[in-house]
Simulated assay, not measured.
Amino acid sequence: MSEPTIGVERNGPVSVIRFNDPTTMNALTGDMAAELRRLLKQEPQTARAIVLAGSARAFSTGANLASAIPESLEGFDVGATLEEEYNPLMETIRDLPVPLISAVRGAAAGVGASIALSADVIVAGQSAYFLEAFARIGLVPDGGATWLLTRAVGRVRAMEMMLLAEKLPAPQALDWGLITRVVEDEAVESAAIEIATRLAKGPSHALALIRKSCWAAVDDDFLTALRTERRLQREAGEHPDFAEGVTAFREKRAPNFGGRG
């Protein structure tokens, strides 16, 4: 019996979801996208942080073209795949109630790059790279890439990545502000899990609200962001984690946060 192409490793309050199809360098099929979405909905029921990882050679090389594109292209709507499979996945990532950390080794290309770059914290190895290869086959970037890239690195650099379809090495991605940190290749997953473990000990309800406010703020004007912060701050203040945080501060001890609740 073959191993699943996406697996889960649970380490206490941290779940590691792993792409596991090394023969294709973790190229994604529609079934894999659906399974990843299912796991991202399932794991927050018990996990307080999620790490998304691949293998040594690749985080993911994007959509598996061999399985996604039919022999005859007549009448074939490439965009339907996005509507049915990848766009719902990206919406699920946006709406996660727990922090998401991506651990990138090797290639992160196409929609695989979009998934990696949609995480809250992005840890990459020295030899990792990001690639928007769509122009090479006459397509446009997807998985929210146009939105993610322009907001992370600006229109001009995003244009360069998408039009030239060249590899962007991890150190340059860090310099551009596209990713969070670069570590030695062999330390990528341990660094990501360490961050996830730290976040799992935090005020889960407040972290969920931070994610919500940040995703909203990217498209909101300043006054709308202020109103969102006011609304979510009230919600955070009504949660037991706030009382515990204040008590711990006054007692000069580490807080013991109980979870989302």
Rank of each mutant, 00 (worst) to 15 (best):
F59R: 03
R260G: 03
L36Q: 05
A133G: 11
V51S: 04
T24F: 01
E194W: 03
T150R: 15
E35C: 00
F76M: 03
M159Y: 12
D175T: 14
T61Y: 08
Q233S: 15
R231E: 15
T81H: 13
A254L: 15
F19R: 02
D221R: 11
A200M: 00
K41A: 09
R230A: 08
D175K: 12
E244Q: 04
A107S: 12
L65Y: 06
G12N: 02
A124W: 11
I115D: 06
I69G: 07
M159F: 10
P22K: 02
T81I: 15
S72F: 07
E160K: 12
R94P: 03
N11W: 04
T81M: 15
V123K: 02
T46Y: 09
D220Y: 12
M1W: 02
T197F: 00
G110I: 01
A80Q: 14
K252P: 00
N64R: 06
E43M: 09
G261I: 03
R260W: 10
V188W: 03
E9C: 02
N64F: 08
N256L: 10
P141T: 05
A128V: 02
E194L: 07
V51G: 11
E251M: 08
A152Q: 01
A196C: 02
G177P: 04
S60M: 04
F222W: 05
A192V: 08
I69S: 00
A217Q: 03
F257D: 04
T92F: 09
T224R: 13
G261K: 14
A27Y: 02
P44T: 06
L96D: 00
A128F: 06
F130K: 01
M25D: 12
G112Q: 11
Y86Q: 09
S102W: 09
A47Q: 07
G62D: 08
L40K: 03
V8P: 08
E132R: 06
G202H: 01
I17T: 02
P88K: 09
L65I: 05
A58M: 12
L28S: 11
L148W: 06
K41Q: 15
I193Q: 13
V188T: 11
A66L: 11
F130M: 05
V153I: 15
R227V: 08
L199Q: 08
L96E: 07
T46H: 05
A135L: 07
P203E: 10
P240N: 04
S72Q: 08
L73Y: 12
E35N: 11
A119Q: 01
A217I: 00
T29Y: 01
S102V: 07
D175L: 01
F222M: 07
V78T: 05
A116D: 07
L223Q: 11
L232N: 12
D219Y: 06
V111T: 13
A196N: 09
R211P: 09
I195H: 12
I115K: 10
V182T: 03
G62I: 00
V123Y: 13
L36N: 12
Y129C: 07
L96V: 03
A192I: 01
G144Y: 08
L178Y: 05
R250E: 15
G7N: 00
G144I: 03
E229N: 14
R48F: 01
I6W: 05
C214M: 14
D120W: 08
I179H: 06
A107F: 09
P171N: 10
L163Q: 14
